[in-house]
């Protein structure tokens, strides 16, 4: 069910994905402002929309400084890794029937693999910066990713059991009768929490916790390299939101409106939820984060998987 015009869908997803990631800077600032009873950027253009453009121009004009003490090749490559891996993951997201870059039969595994590769970016950035705060950030990122990746993958296995396929369009098709959020509610909550950790968003932003580690792994970065980390983070938010809507909320399925619109509505809803959580929650301590991951989330995920497996086994 790959698209008849693959180049078109590649370009479309690339351009739309990148513009959404850029626009998210504005969306996040406006939404945070709304929830803090402020206005946010509303001066540049209508509703401050051109703020995105202004920020982009500004970040391109900034000096791209590479400190003399860094490990130069790795330092330069690190921001590209996060960007590339997130973009690769978008290849398997089914936006609508026929609009998908590559309908892999192991699409879900591909997504998990790519999001795990993303952690190399953070670790290498922290390592090559030759700076203790950056290194601490990278260290935290690797520990956090290791512990949250485990149950992130496992929390999705319930969906795979119900759909009987790793292919994302097939998973969406399997939700025609009922969205998987109902039978797999626990799986959805677990995946959501793992998604926050995966994108290093605020309740789990310990790798860059600016109040303790300057800016964590990207302390030494400036200019567009710093911007790449941010675009990567926003792309990651979009990716996780898109994955949630595909895996648990029926992707493009919905009445009246065309599939693409339903997909975008659901994705935007979860992006807003990411911002809402950022506005609401503080950051936990690192040992709390680890023990929460290993002692609470992992057993819950395993229990969810066992129960789902048993139900599927006896039902069929």
């Amino acid at each position: 069910m790959t698209s008849p015009y693959p180049i078109l869908s590649i370009l479309g997803i690339l351009i739309v994905g990148l513009s959404i990631a850029a626009l998210l800077i504005w969306v996040e600032r406006r939404l945070l402002a709304l929830w803090q009873d402020r206005y946010g950027p509303n001066r540049v253009g209508p509703f401050g929309l051109l703020q995105v453009l202004a920020d982009t121009i500004k970040i391109f004009m900034k000096e791209d400084w590479i400190p003399p003490f860094v490990d130069k090749p790795i330092f330069v490559v690190a921001p590209a890794i996060v960007f590339v891996t997130v973009l690769m993951s978008f290849a398997v997201i089914p936006v609508a029937p026929g609009i998908i870059v590559s309908d892999l039969n192991v699409g879900l595994l591909f997504f998990l693999a790519m999001s795990s590769l993303g952690v190399y970016s953070v670790v290498l950035a922290g390592w090559s910066s030759n700076n203790k705060y950056a290194l601490l950030g990278g260290l935290r990122a690797s520990a956090q990713m290791l512990s949250y990746e485990v149950f992130m993958g496992l929390s999705l296995m319930g969906v795979v059991l119900l759909a009987g396929s790793f292919s994302l369009p097939a998973i969406v098709e399997a939700q025609k009768k009922m969205w998987f959020v109902i039978p797999q509610f626990l799986g959805f909550v677990l995946f959501l929490i793992a998604g926050f950790a995966e994108t290093r968003r605020i309740p789990f932003d310990l790798p860059e916790s600016e109040s303790e580690l300057v800016a964590g792994y990207h302390s030494e970065y400036s200019g567009m390299k710093f911007g790449m980390f941010f675009v990567g983070e926003y792309m990651g938010v979009t990716l996780i939101s898109a994955m949630i809507s595909v895996l648990f909320f029926g992707g493009w399925l919905g009445p009246i409106l065309p599939g693409v619109v339903w997909f975008l509505i659901k994705t935007f809803f979860f992006i807003s939820f990411f911002v809402l959580v950022r506005a609401a929650l503080p950051r936990p301590r690192f040992d709390q984060l680890m023990s929460w991951g290993w002692k609470v989330m992992l057993p819950l995920t395993l229990a969810n998987l066992l129960v789902t497996g048993a139900v599927v086994l006896f039902w069929r």
């Binding site: 402002a33 709304l34 929830w35 803090q36 009873d37 402020r38 206005y39 809402l276 506005a279 609401a280």
Partner: peptide, 21 residues
């Protein structure tokens, strides 16, 4: 309390903004 916090923050969508432009 985490869920309650998220809900209370969401309720701020309907508050008046206090910024003086």
């Amino acid at each position: 309390s985490i869920l309650r916090t998220i809900w209370y923050v969401f309720l701020h969508s309907f508050r008046k903004r206090i910024t003086v432009q």
